[in-house]
Computed example of a mutant assay.
Amino acid sequence: MPRVAVLRHTFGIASETFVLEQARAFTRWEPVLLSRDALPAGLSGAVLGRGAAAHTAGLGSAPMTRLLRDLRVDAVLAHFGVEGSCVLPATRRAGVPLATVFHGFDATTTTAALLRARTPSWVTYARRRARLARQGELFLPVSEHLRTRLLERGFPADRTVTHHLGLDLRKLPAAGEPEPRTIVHVGRLVPKKGHVHLLRALAELPGVRLTCVGDGPLLGELTHLVGELGLGDRVRFAGRLDNTATLELVARSAVLCLPSTTAPSGDQEGLGQVLLEAGALGRPVVASRHGGIPSAVVDGVTGLLVPEADPVALAAALRRVLDDPELAARLGSAAREHVTGEFDVNSRTARLEELLDGLVRR
């Protein structure tokens, strides 16, 4: 059985369950996790250890090269362009092909914003992005929107293939009757996630309650806006929850809302994995027509899409779903069918294994 090194500098991030779900879905390839930090339980792998700092800063590839050789991997699958750029020199020295998955910010954030962040791995990515485009064997954006952004940045069309990661449908809780007139938003408290626009829309929806899952630097600003708009008794900031608790909350809510916008850095949504989770649970979605979201939500069929940063349009769409149970049920049913048919992690990973087969043959 061929072996693929699955590289993510930090595994187990609550919003990135798709990385490990994909790794566990391999059947013809053996996944070997590579990390800068600790490894999750249940999968084999290795930690870079003392060479991690040099690896992420782009100062030395020898430790990673030795790991790739010692593990006898046939290919490397790097999650995020940052990881792809950091591991690129080691894959050249070890003689193994590199496939890089792009999830969102890594295809859309400007080079200047990456450099301003001063995070060593992001700086390495900013400096090596053009080299990665020239030398990497395969690039896998998770939506057609991200593929377009990569092509604009000079990535080769023949090696840049849209590939949806998929969702582990077995993990979903039972979806009973939702609590009426409830909205849930899942995402970090950062400008890209559109909380400000959702709160302003909520002010136009009397009696509707909102729960926001996630933490981040905007908590103070958003809490102040809640008070300013007189929404104190209708908004709850639940903080960071694990995936199980998040799914249970989504399953109980009447609608999931993700009104994402383009951040000042250029950062955009790659796809919006929570949209797939809500759809698989049979919950209707209201979201912005932004980034890769239209790859996950079929407007008017599985959910409703509105323009970015438009609280009036957002409130109107939410009102339609909340006031019309038949519409909500129809959207939710279509969403479940769409996700189970197009985004099952097992069928998507089988396709990924075919792409890796092609790398080895080439």
Rank of each mutant, 00 (worst) to 15 (best):
G42E: 06
V298F: 03
R149Q: 13
E30R: 13
L271R: 02
A126T: 12
L331Y: 07
A317V: 10
V345M: 05
H9T: 12
P120T: 10
R92S: 13
A53C: 06
C212S: 14
L77H: 04
L98D: 00
A90L: 08
G291K: 10
A54P: 11
G176P: 07
L34Q: 08
T223A: 15
A245W: 05
E228H: 14
P31Y: 00
S288I: 11
V250P: 09
L271W: 01
V161K: 03
G45F: 01
L222P: 07
S143R: 02
T119Q: 14
E308F: 07
L305E: 01
A62L: 15
S121V: 09
L172Y: 12
A328E: 08
A112F: 07
R153M: 08
S35R: 06
A238H: 02
L241M: 13
H55Q: 15
R36K: 10
A25L: 02
V286E: 00
V76W: 05
V47F: 04
V161S: 04
D310G: 00
G187H: 10
V274I: 15
T246R: 07
T262S: 09
F237A: 08
C257P: 12
F343R: 00
W29C: 01
A52F: 11
R50P: 10
T160S: 02
F105V: 10
R28C: 07
A117G: 13
P264D: 09
G136K: 02
G84A: 06
A54W: 14
L318V: 02
H338L: 09
S15C: 11
A90I: 03
V274K: 04
L225E: 14
H197A: 04
H224D: 15
E177L: 07
P156D: 01
P259R: 02
K193H: 15
V19C: 09
A309S: 07
E269K: 15
E21N: 02
D70H: 02
R236W: 07
A99S: 04
A309Q: 12
G45R: 04
E337T: 15
A251M: 09
E354A: 15
L165V: 02
A313E: 05
P191L: 09
L249E: 03
L146M: 12
L7S: 12
D158L: 04
E177R: 13
G42Y: 09
L88V: 06
L258P: 09
L322A: 00
C212H: 07
F80H: 15
G216R: 10
R351I: 03
R283E: 11
D37A: 11
T65D: 06
T110R: 12
L20F: 01
V312Y: 02
E277P: 09
R131Y: 05
E177M: 04
L256Y: 03
L327A: 01
G341E: 13
G95A: 08
A245S: 13
P180A: 00
A251L: 06
W122Y: 15
T340L: 13
R36T: 14
K192D: 11
P264G: 12
E342M: 10
V32R: 03
G95F: 12
F18Y: 04
G292A: 11
L132M: 03
G230S: 14
L231I: 05
L322Y: 00
R24K: 05
D357N: 13
D37H: 14
R93S: 15
G279E: 07
E354F: 06
